[in-house]
C-alpha cells in the first residue's frame, strides 16, 4: 500500500486520490481552524514560519503572523520550557520538532516539568501544550532521524501520546489535542505526510474532535488480531487483504492513542480471535509491543490459542543504507509471514 517515493518531493498523486486530503494538509487544517477559534493558540518551532521542513505549517504565518507562528532558535530546552511556562500562563502552545528524535534534547522539560507540575502543585496548574514529533523510518534519514520513541513518553505519567494513521484522525486528533488541558505528544509518521486518504463528511466539520482512548477496528476478522500503529496499520491492512484470499480472516486494530489506551477494544478482539500479533516500528526491547501483549496476558490469557507475537525493530539503530533500513523495520511481508506461521499451529 505504501510507496517510499511518496516521501520525496514530487511524488505522484494518483487520479482517485485527487480530492482526498493529505495527511499533512489535515494537520495544517486542524491547526488553522483551532487558531481561528482560539486566539490563545500559538506555535513555536524551527523554520515553521518561512520554510516548514515537511510543509505541515505552510501558510499559517501568512494568516496568523509571526507572533503566533514563532520561528524558534535551535534551543529545544528553552522552547519546550517556554511552552510549559506559557501554558501555565494561560496560553495554548504547539511546538514543532523537525524530527521527533530531538525530543531527547529537552526530555526533562517534558517528563519532569510539563508532565509533573500539575501533580506537584496539588492541581494548581494545568499545562495544555502539544508537541508535534515527526517520527519513523523509511526515508533513509539515518539513525537519529528515524526512530519511533513514543514508548519513552507513554512510560511516564502525565503525558498523552497520540499516533494518528489517517487524514481524518490526524485532523480530529490534532484538534482534540489543542483543546486538551494536558501535555500531548502528537507523533507524525513522516511516510504518511504525503499520503492521501478518503474522509467522511465530518472531516469538514470544524467542531468535530476526536475522543482519546478509542481504538479503531480498521478491519474486522475472526482468526487473528493484529494491533498496529501509524504506517504499520496500512501494512497490516495490506497483509490482511492478501491473507483473505487464503481464507485467513484478520482483524486490524489501530489503538490511535497509547495514553490513554483502549484496553477494552483490544481485549474484546482477542477474546474473539484467540490470536494476537503486535506490529510497530519501535524498538522491541521493553516497548509498546510488549505492553500490549502483557495487557492481553493479564486480561484475556485464557482466550489465547497461540503464543502472542510481536514485530518491531530488533534493537539496532535504524540504518542509513536503505537495504539495511528495510531489513530492521517491519512491514507487510513480515506481517504476512508471522500470521501464516501463527495460523499454522
Amino acid at each position: 500500500m505504501f510507496d517510499n517515493r511518496l516521501f520525496r518531493p514530487g511524488g505522484p498523486v494518483k487520479p482517485e486520490e485527487k480530492d482526498w486530503p493529505s495527511f499533512r494538509g489535515a494537520i495544517n487544517e486542524a491547526m488553522r481552524e483551532e487558531m481561528r477559534r482560539d486566539p490563545l493558540v500559538f506555535q513555536m518551532g524551527e523554520d515553521i514560519a518561512l520554510a516548514s521542513p515537511f510543509g505541515v505549517t505552510t501558510g499559517l504565518a501568512k494568516e496568523f503572523g509571526r507572533e503566533r507562528i514563532r520561528d524558534a532558535p535551535c534551543a529545544e530546552v528553552a522552547v519546550v520550557g517556554a511552552a510549559v511556562g506559557a501554558a501555565m500562563g494561560g496560553m495554548r502552545p504547539i511546538v514543532e520538532f523537525q524530527f521527533g528524535d530531538f525530543m531527547s534534547v529537552a526530555i526533562d522539560q517534558l517528563t519532569h516539568q510539563a508532565a509533573m507540575l500539575r501533580y506537584l502543585t496539588g492541581g494548581q496548574v494545568s499545562v495544555p501544550l502539544v508537541i508535534r514529533l515527526p517520527c519513523g523510518g523509511g526515508q533513509g534519514a539515518g539513525s537519529q532521524h528515524s526512530q519511533s520513541l513514543y514508548s519513552w513518553f507513554a512510560h511516564v505519567p502525565g503525558i498523552k501520546v497520540l499516533l494518528p494513521s489517517t487524514s481524518m484522525d490526524a485532523k480530529a486528533m490534532m484538534k482534540a489535542a489543542i483543546r486538551d488541558n494536558n501535555p500531548v505528544l502528537f507523533f507524525e509518521h513522516k511516510q504518511l505526510y504525503r499520503t492521501r486518504w478518503p474522509v467522511p463528511a465530518e472531516f469538514r466539520d470544524a467542531d468535530h474532535v476526536a475522543e482519546f482512548g478509542k481504538a479503531a477496528v480498521r478491519r474486522e476478522g475472526v482468526d487473528i488480531t493484529v494491533v498496529a500503529t501509524l504506517t504499520m496499520v496500512h501494512h497490516a491492512l495490506a497483509a490482511a487483504e492478501a491473507l483473505a484470499a487464503e481464507g485467513v480472516s484478520v482483524e486490524v486494530i489501530d489503538p490511535r492513542t497509547l495514553v490513554p489506551f483502549d484496553v477494552d477494544t483490544l481485549v474484546a478482539s482477542v477474546r474473539k480471535t484467540g490470536r494476537l500479533l503486535v506490529v510497530d516500528e519501535a524498538y522491541l526491547n521493553f516497548g509498546i509491543q510488549a505492553e500490549v501483549i502483557a495487557t492481553v496476558a493479564e486480561r484475556a490469557f485464557e482466550a489465547l490459542k497461540a503464543a502472542p507475537r510481536r514485530l518491531g525493530n530488533p534493537n539496532v539503530p535504524v540504518p542509513f543504507a536503505p537495504c539495511l533500513q528495510d531489513e530492521v523495520l517491519p512491514g507487510r511481508a513480515r506481517i504476512e509471514a508471522a500470521i501464516r506461521q501463527m495460523m499454522s499451529r
Binding site: V77, G81, A82, V84, G85, A86, A87, Q109
Partner: peptide, 8 residues
C-alpha cells in the same frame, strides 16, 4: 526556561 515561558 519555564519562567521564560510565563514571561512570553
Amino acid at each position: 526556561p519555564i519562567a521564560g515561558g510565563m514571561a512570553l
